[in-house]
Each structure stands twice: as C-alpha cells, then as structure tokens.
Simulated assay, not measured.
Amino acid sequence: MNPIQANKLLLSKWTAVQVVAKQKHFLVSKVYLPVPQEGQVARHTVIEFVELEAVYTKTKRKIAWKELADTTQWKQGWL
C-alpha cells in the first residue's frame, strides 16, 4: 500500500477489514484540522481527525486519521 497522504484524504475510499452491521465501505466525508490557539501561526496543515461515512447506511464516525494506516483494520479503496 502507498503511504497515506494527508492532503488527499478527503473523499478517499476505504474498506473495513471487519464488517459490522453491513458496514464495509466508507468515504472520508470530512477532514478536521486543529483549531489554532490565539497567538499561534499555523506553519503547515496538519489533520487531526477524519469523518468516515458508511456508503450503505450513511452513518458517520470520527476517527484519528492515522488509524487508516493500520492494515489490520482498513484497506485503501473498495475491495
């Protein structure tokens, strides 16, 4: 698998290794950026969390974006 690029996560496709309640295929529907504190200047864009939307049920869940790199839980693309 290619390394995950944070700037290309939005609308990327993912397959869960363990299917739960017919939820297997997901899209990254939202990317959460950290809120800069007062007086801080953001040097570069860092993603904290992503929102995954199940294709079948449209349910959403928020996870740390680095969890997608765990190949025991997620596969990139729809398999």
Rank of each mutant, 00 (worst) to 15 (best):
R43H: 09
G77W: 09
Q5F: 08
F49G: 01
A42P: 00
T59M: 10
I63N: 05
I4A: 03
V50A: 07
E53A: 13
E53N: 06
S12H: 04
R43I: 11
V55F: 02
T45V: 14
W65M: 01
K75Q: 15
V50S: 01
V31Y: 00
E38M: 13
L9M: 05
T71W: 02
Q37A: 03
K66F: 04
E48L: 11
A64K: 07
A54F: 00
A21H: 15
K8L: 13
H44A: 12
T59H: 08
T15P: 09
K8W: 02
A69S: 14
Q40L: 06
T57L: 12
K62M: 11
R61V: 10
Q73K: 13
V50T: 00
H44S: 14
N7D: 14
G39M: 06
V46Q: 02
K60D: 08
F49V: 06
P36G: 10
E51S: 04
I4S: 01
L68C: 03
A6D: 06
P36K: 14
G77Q: 12
E67H: 09
E51V: 12
Y56G: 00
E38D: 08
V41G: 00
T59P: 02
V46I: 10
A16V: 01
H25S: 07
L9Y: 08
V41K: 14
V50Q: 00
K24H: 07
K75R: 15
A54C: 15
Q76V: 05
A64P: 12
A64F: 10
W65L: 01
R43F: 10
T72E: 12
Y32A: 11
A16E: 12
V20N: 07
A6C: 10
K58I: 06
H25R: 04
K62G: 01
N7P: 00
T72P: 02
Y32C: 08
A21L: 14
K62N: 14
Y56A: 11
V19F: 02
K75D: 08
V20G: 05
T15V: 08
V19H: 03
Q5A: 08
Q73S: 12
E48G: 02
Q18W: 04
A54K: 00
V41T: 10
V55Q: 09
P34N: 11
V41P: 01
E67T: 13
Q23P: 01
Q5L: 13
L52Q: 03
I63K: 05
E51N: 07
T71A: 09
K30Y: 11
V20I: 15
F49M: 13
V50I: 15
E53V: 12
K8Y: 12
T15S: 11
K13R: 15
R61S: 08
L52E: 03
K66P: 00
K75C: 02
P34I: 09
V41W: 01
K66E: 03
S12L: 03
T57E: 04
N2L: 14
T72I: 02
L9C: 04
Q37I: 10
K8C: 07
I4P: 00
L11I: 10
D70R: 06
W65I: 01
L27S: 03
P3L: 10
F26D: 03
Q18V: 15
F26T: 03
V35I: 15
K30H: 14
W14N: 07
S29I: 06
A54V: 04
A64E: 11
L9G: 01
K22C: 02
V17E: 13
L27M: 04
P36L: 07
P34Q: 06
I63R: 01
F26N: 02
Q23W: 05
